[in-house]
Design a protein around this nucleic acid. Structure first.
Length: 569
RNA sequence: CUGCUCAUAGCUCAGCAGGAUAGAGCAGUCGCCUCCUAAGCGACCGAUGGGGGUUCGAGUCCCUCUGGGCAGACCA
């Protein structure tokens, strides 16, 4: 598509002495379309040119030459130079772009670049609760969006399958394994054991020591510990898969922490050679005070076992070698900000290329809290993700029964709508914000929600279906797409790829969520104002094609967020 | 105590690396289905935590205060 901003920047650059690149950042999109489609504020030139901004705007206006096929008009308002792009050209550009591209939004800007995304990463032997949803859906959305932009993406589920917690579980299992029926409700029973052993650890320091020792045994490949650990892992994965199936989550790699158990000695060796690894209180640590981090990074505990920092470092080394990543994103809650600061700093000592250490990024997100406060596995006050998803499906089903009882495939639609609502709800807000979980908010189907987007999509579908064949691009008379409602839609569609790029610039899927809401709203307005299937075939064809475009973008966009789109609802 | 982070309408959030009159949704009140799905559309109501500063211009940047959250060495 034509890059309008680029054209404007080129012209202004000729009229002034400012570089195109600089101008690109100055040119903005007015909030109110009455002020044009693009605007150049001239205030910043006033001091240098010693002239009033409106005068400067007028001078630039006189100097620039813009083809009227590209720009309808240029106006000076105050110190602003407002550009109105040619409406027909916009319509033509968008229609052709959608027609030409098999998958509109797809690009190759990421060609040759490798992106590693570390997300979801639940802890084995612990319930998969609603707090794990965010990492899973934010990671998946980023994964899909990088992919459509042409990047080579590697999604890794860095399972929490290692560490002292397993020493604890092994100890608990040793003590009371017979009392619990692991086959009946694996994670539920393991959770009970986990809570019980934690209480015992609190009372008795010796038990805690034994737990840590168990983990040491596990690291040293002790047969008994390994066997129990494998059992826990298998049982947990079975449970997790149920949730992943509902969400449609997929991963390229399931290499969890344990995968790096044999890769840590090298890390320790490298760090030792740097001379920065020092003994402190019995442990071996890297001091980071000179980097502005007060807490040292523990590489080896006093009993000789490793920490998750050591494993993350081994993972960085491994991923750099295996995937040659340009970016490695860690979609992990902001609770772990300090940890990643430490690990990323220590990674600079690993002797790997700067490209890799520069590419490390913690994509932090806020916590999911209950109205009563934090969720805690130990306290048992948490909501299982599976329960939330099933409740969502159930509620969607009820609404279908009430609104559209004749619908076919009710269960399939209920699943898409229910899950879509949950996913969208989690991706709709800036990731850094905390979320206080509320059933009615998470499962709301009205207003700015996933189902609203699905509903709008379904509408485009049923209009197209009713009309029969989709008109050929050559048969579309763009004269019928210059009204305000059509133009609002066309401008949004024009922005689609830019929106996807913004998501990757900020690692912020909510930008796409809001975009889809805007697009769905723009179409709803259009739909309410205009009859699409009408007598005049020229009008109908133009409106039908616009409808087709909206449906296509809504579907692509929602799929990128991880939502499935029903054809009817 | 220290570091990080958040603060916009009754509630949940937008506000594009400072730009024109701060936008939505929910809740509340009211209006719109002989017409392509009312999970929709429209209307009304209603806001930048306090104080400084930088700037032609600050919700946005800096300082400070207040309030919430998180983190701070052998959990991950």
């Amino acid at each position: 598509m034509i890059d309008f901003k680029d054209i404007i920047a080129k012209e202004i650059s000729k009229a002034t002495n400012i570089s195109e690149k600089e101008l690109e950042s100055y040119i903005e999109k007015p909030k109110d379309s009455k002020n044009g489609d693009y605007a150049f504020p001239c205030f910043r030139l006033a001091k240098e040119l010693k002239k009033a901004p409106p005068a400067i705007a007028n001078e630039i206006k006189e100097k620039i030459i813009l083809d009227e096929n590209i720009m309808d008009k240029v106006e000076v308002v105050g110190g602003y130079l407002n550009f109105y792009i040619n409406k027909k050209l916009l319509a033509k550009e968008v229609i052709e772009a959608v027609d030409k591209n098999e998958e509109f939004g797809k690009s190759d800007i990421g060609k040759g670049k490798n992106i590693v995304i570390d997300y979801s990463a639940p802890n084995i032997a612990k319930p998969f609760h609603i707090g794990h949803l965010r990492s899973t859906v934010i990671g998946a959305a980023l994964y899909n969006i990088y992919k459509i932009l042409g990047y080579n993406v590697i999604g890794i589920n860095h399972l929490g399958d290692y560490g002292t917690q397993f020493g604890k579980l092994i100890e608990g299992y040793k003590l009371w394994g017979n009392e619990y029926d692991l086959d009946k409700d694996p994670i539920g029973e393991l959770t009970k054991i986990y809570i019980r052993i934690n209480e015992l650890c609190k009372e008795d320091e010796k038990v805690l020591e034994q737990c840590r020792y168990n983990f040491k045994l596990l690291e040293d490949k002790d047969e008994y510990c390994t066997k129990i650990w494998e059992k826990f892992k298998e049982l947990s994965l079975q449970e997790f898969k149920k949730v992943y199936d509902l969400l449609g989550s997929e991963f390229d790699s399931w290499n969890g922490e344990a995968f790096y158990s044999d890769k840590m000695p090298e890390v320790i060796e490298i760090l030792q050679k740097t001379g920065k690894l020092q003994k402190s209180q019995g442990a071996e640590v890297i001091n980071l005070e000179d980097k502005g981090i007060d807490t040292p990074c523990i590489i080896k505990k006093s009993n000789g076992s490793t920490t998750y920092a050591t494993r993350d470092l081994a993972a960085i080394l491994y991923r750099a070698r295996t995937y040659d990543f340009d970016k490695a994103l860690y979609v992990v809650s902001y609770e772990q900000t300090l940890h990643f600061k430490q690990v990323f700093e220590v990674a600079k000592l690993l002797g790997i290329d700067k490209k890799y250490t520069d590419g490390l990024e913690h994509v932090a997100f806020g916590m999911v809290l209950l109205p009563s406060g934090r969720m805690s596995t130990r306290a048992g006050n948490m909501i299982k993700l599976e329960d939330l998803l099933n409740e969502a499906i159930q509620r969607a089903k009820e609404i279908i029964e009430q609104k559209n009882p004749e619908l076919e495939d009710k269960d399939d639609v209920a699943k898409k709508v229910g899950i879509g609502a949950v996913i969208f709800n989690d991706l709709a807000n800036s990731r850094i914000k905390d979320e206080i979980f509320d059933w009615d908010t998470a499962l709301n189907f009205q207003g700015e929600t996933g189902p609203y987007i699905q509903y709008t999509y379904v509408r485009t579908n049923s209009v197209l279906q009713k009309a029969g064949d989709l008109p050929k691009v050559e048969d579309i008379n763009i004269d019928y797409l210059v009204d305000e409602y059509s133009q609002n839609i066309l401008k949004l569609v024009y922005d689609f790829e830019e929106t996807l790029k913004q998501v990757t610039n900020k690692e912020e899927p909510s930008i796409l969520s809001r975009y889809l809401i805007d697009l769905a709203k723009a179409y709803s307005n259009f739909y309410n104002e205009n009859k699409i299937i009408v007598e005049d075939k020229d009008v109908q064809n133009a409106r039908l094609y616009l409808t087709y475009i909206v449906g296509k973008v809504l579907k692509t966009g929602a799929n990128l967020l991880g939502m499935e789109m029903p054809n009817k609802m």
